[in-house]
Design a protein around this nucleic acid. Structure first.
Lengths: 161, 161
DNA sequence: AGTTAAACTGTTATATTATATCAGGAAAAA
DNA sequence: TTTTTCCTGATATAATATAACAGTTTAACT
């Protein structure tokens, strides 16, 4: 397993955001995808923190920014972002976050803080291999995986003490 | 990873059901838990197949059996069954299934068929170890995991051909 | 047994998450 | 410039899940 395990650490988040957004813009250009205004806005909101946001949280944030919209706008944007791996859904929370390696073919795994909702993303080749082995034993063919671990991030462990 | 990878194979399902239900009854007796009528009914419905059912599917089935009820009845029963590991939730589907090793302390992983919704359950000590290692690197403490793989079971692969 | 406390049920209402549908507009392709 | 495709805007509604509260059953205690 490998990945930019930065989410829980202090880091240059402005750089982090612009790096990710640039990657999305480039990927769209190379693949004939349209990063329209509403998609870009939702992406921008997700990129503002390494935290999982519900669709209606995003709607609230859009309203705060003077760009209020109806649910289908957000869900369509999220469908686009998730389909192209610019964002991921945390199934257990029905919440979304921006991807750490936008566009790249990968099977993500997540560490999600139960307290602050911050999320660290990693790729999970080894875990995948393990699931693959189990699947092969049963003759099952895996198409996609959901791997989410919940617990406490370093900061929230301290707070709890 | 190990587990009773029977779900996709033909097997003595009557035996399978009664084995599981007996295990639940015994566990409840040993731990002062009450398998009340509504909990038992929901368990019975879940045990009828190795398939994930939505809460409202369960309500429909209760109605068919002349035991119609309101949503809170089912959600409370599911809360009880899941809290005591007699059932699990497939997060990606918002659906539930009976546990293959009721009451036993375990971190389950699932293979879920996208076509027929059948589910095989396994325990994932190795995968857990892997997530643990990643978590430890980040100073994250895992409390629980969601591991779900989606794809095609052997039968549905044949059908698709 | 009688009393109390705890846990469970039944019911209504409502919150939360997500999608169907359809008219219209912008962008790209032909 | 016409056509087609994709995207938006808006309304309505579907699907999933919980809050709240009165009443009942069960268990625990005396």
């Amino acid at each position: 397993m490998a990945g930019p395990e930065l989410s829980f650490s202090k880091h240059d988040h402005e750089g982090c955001k612009s790096y990710s957004r640039d990657a999305v813009v480039q990927y769209c250009a190379e693949n004939g995808l349209r990063l329209t205004a509403s998609r870009d806005l939702v992406l921008e909101i997700l990129l503002s923190d390494h935290r999982a946001l519900g669709a209606y949280d995003i709607l609230d944030e859009m309203a705060k920014r003077g760009q209020s919209a109806q649910p289908p706008i957000v869900y369509r944007a999220l469908d686009f972002l998730v389909a192209n791996r610019f964002a991921h859904k945390i199934e257990h929370l029905n919440a979304f976050l921006a991807c750490g390696m936008p566009g790249a073919e990968h099977s993500p795994a997540f560490l999600v803080c139960n307290n602050c909702r911050k999320v660290a993303e990693a790729t999970v080749n080894d875990t995948d291999a393990l699931l693959e082995r189990f699947a092969n034993n049963s003759g099952f063919v895996i198409q996609n995986t959901v791997i989410e671990a919940f617990g406490l991030c370093p900061d929230c462990q301290e707070t709890a003490e």
